Simulated assay, not measured.
Amino acid sequence: MMKVVFLLVPQLHLLDLAGPAQVFSTARDFGLDYALHYVAEQDDVPSAQGATIRRTSPLPELEPADLVVVPGWRSHGFPGNGRLSPVARAWLAGHHAAGGTCASVCSGADALGQAGLLDGRRCTTHHLLQERLASQYPRARVLKDVLFVIDDRVVTSAGIASGIDLALHLVATRHGPGLAAQVAREMVVYARRNGDEPQDSAMLRHRAHLSDVVHRVQDVIDARFTDRLPLRELASAAGVSERTLTRAFGDATGLTPLRYQQLLRVERAEHLIGHGATVEAAARAAGFEDARMLRRLRAR
Results as ranks from 00 to 15, higher is better:
M1V: 06
F6V: 05
F6Y: 07
L7H: 06
L8E: 08
L12C: 03
L14V: 15
L15M: 04
L17N: 10
A21K: 03
Q22L: 04
Q22K: 04
F24M: 04
F30E: 10
G31Q: 09
L32S: 12
V39F: 15
E41W: 00
E41M: 02
P46C: 09
S47A: 14
A48R: 10
A51M: 14
A51H: 13
R54N: 09
R55Y: 03
T56D: 11
T56F: 02
S57G: 15
P60G: 06
E61Y: 07
E61K: 14
L62S: 10
E63P: 03
P64V: 11
V69I: 15
V70P: 07
P71M: 03
G72D: 04
N81G: 14
G82V: 00
G82Q: 05
R83M: 03
R83N: 05
L84G: 00
L84K: 02
S85D: 01
S85I: 01
P86Q: 11
A88W: 07
A90F: 00
A93Q: 07
G94M: 00
G94C: 00
H96W: 09
H96Y: 04
A111I: 04
G113I: 06
Q114V: 11
R121W: 04
R122L: 15
R122T: 03
H127A: 11
L128E: 15
Q130G: 08
L133R: 09
A134M: 06
S135D: 10
S135V: 07
Q136K: 12
P138M: 05
V142A: 13
F148T: 14
F148D: 14
V149G: 01
D151S: 04
D151T: 08
R153K: 12
V155F: 15
T156L: 10
G159F: 03
I160T: 13
G163I: 00
A167T: 04
P177L: 08
Q182A: 14
A184E: 00
A184L: 05
R185A: 10
V188D: 07
V188K: 04
V188N: 08
V189M: 04
Y190L: 06
E197P: 06
D200G: 09
M203W: 02
R205E: 11
L210Q: 12
V213Q: 01
H215W: 08
R216V: 10
Q218I: 01
A223F: 02
F225G: 00
D227H: 14
D227Q: 11
R228C: 07
L229K: 13
L229S: 10
L231Y: 10
A235H: 03
S236H: 13
S241Y: 12
R243P: 05
L245A: 09
A248W: 02
P257T: 09
L258A: 13
Y260C: 03
L263Q: 11
R265I: 04
R265C: 00
R265W: 03
V266W: 05
H271E: 15
H271Y: 09
G274Q: 05
V279P: 01
A282W: 12
A282T: 00
A283M: 06
A286E: 02
F288P: 02
E289H: 13
D290E: 08
R292W: 09
M293C: 08
R295Y: 14
L297Q: 07
L297E: 02
